[in-house]
């Protein structure tokens, strides 16, 4: 897989007529060259791992959630609403607790948005792919409304929320770096998701429903309940991605709050083989691609969009390889 990814990278650079060796050096130094590079990689990987985990849980249950973006945005909106109407100006709540409250609100917002799609599927038979894609648009438009309406900053000049006070932001090891301590959260979440999926009864049911819903039914497992549960967890993860981006990096919401993190969770999860622990690695790979290509864009004429091309090719390659190996493995029974 790693070799494949490097090959894809080299091919893409060739297509863009960039000097391969030099560009790779720039990519690597931008991603892992020094502590600043590492910090950028980690900060990019953080929301990616959260949304990736969201996809892992949903897809493992056979719920093809494409709505990470909307759930990410709704998480951010809920967090910002709680910050504005409950926390800012209140002196009774210590900063760390405030951060926690915001994160909880973000997770809740994402979960609620995902629940809507789950409900539509279970009760009305609306395909999850369709509803989640459409709910993305609703969420993004709602974000536009919020930041120029109820959540807009006091000065009301630009469509942005107020910047959070530092006390509510996630703490940083060094003011010179982007790095915040929130990056450990998705790693912990990955461990929790791993234990949940592979070491608990509800996690087993979830995997079973995703692998063979008919078998679950024949064993009297309520697939609808399991699917709703999966979407709630998935939405929570995506909402938390919005949370760490909000109180870890941005500090305020604007119309550009969503940077495709929700969509990018899908390639992260796929490249991680829909496994929570491998998703840590794949989130780091994608985070590094982002950090590295920023560096590349700085020193060459390749735009930062190059990273999206590389990701797209990587995912297509992965899906192609997987489809092939599945076809080979598929058992054939005579009679």
């Amino acid at each position: 897989m790693v070799i494949g990814l490097v090959a894809v990278l080299v091919l893409t650079l060739l297509v863009f007529r960039l000097p391969v060796i030099e560009s790779l050096k720039l990519l690597i130094s931008g991603a892992f060259g020094d502590q600043f590079a590492w910090s950028r990689t980690a900060v990019k990987a953080c929301p990616l791992l959260f949304t990736g985990l969201g996809m892992v849980v949903a897809w493992r249950a056979g719920m093809y959630n494409i709505g990470g973006e909307g759930q990410f945005v709704m998480g951010g909106i809920c967090g910002a609403a709680v910050a504005k109407f409950v926390l800012v100006g209140s002196t009774a709540i210590p900063g760390w607790l405030g951060s926690l409250v915001i994160l909880v609100a973000c997770g809740f917002g994402g979960a609620a948005w995902a629940w809507l799609a789950a409900w539509l599927f279970v009760r009305r038979g609306v395909a999850v792919v369709i509803s989640t894609i459409l709910l993305n648009f609703v969420a993004i438009q709602f974000l536009g409304y919020c930041v120029s309406g109820p959540l807009q900053q006091k000065k009301q000049e630009v469509p942005l929320t107020d910047t959070l006070p530092d006390a509510l932001m996630l703490p940083k090891p060094s003011p010179q770096m982007d790095l915040h301590f929130g990056v450990v959260l998705p790693v912990l979440a990955a461990l929790v998701v791993f234990v949940y999926l592979y070491r608990t009864r509800p996690g087993y049911r979830l995997r079973l429903v995703g692998e063979n819903a008919d078998m679950a039914r024949a064993n009297r497992i309520d697939a609808a309940k399991v699917q709703i549960q999966a979407m709630l967890i998935s939405g929570t993860m995506c909402g938390l991605a919005g949370g760490v981006e909000y109180i870890g990096v941005a500090g305020q919401l604007g119309t550009d709050f969503s940077q495709q993190w929700g969509f990018l969770g899908i390639p992260v999860a796929l490249l991680g083989g829909l496994h929570p622990l491998f998703s840590i690695l794949s989130a780091i790979v994608f985070g590094a691609l982002f950090a590295g290509s920023e560096n590349l864009a700085r020193f060459t004429n390749a735009g930062a969009t190059l990273v999206y091309v590389i990701q797209a090719v990587a995912v297509l390659g992965y899906v192609g390889i997987k489809a092939r190996s599945d076809a080979v493995k598929a058992p054939v029974e005579a009679g």
């Binding site: 592979y198 087993y204 063979n212 039914r217 064993n219």
Partner: peptide, 30 residues
């Protein structure tokens, strides 16, 4: 169709009939 999840392990395929058995679980944990 109804009896097996072909892409899950044999063990996991057996577990579906053991979900109610206390000796396989500590609380929700396997």
């Amino acid at each position: 169709r109804d009896g097996l999840a072909l892409r899950m392990s044999i063990r996991d395929n057996m577990l579906v009939s053991g979900l109610h058995r206390p000796e396989f679980f500590a609380g929700p944990f396997l």
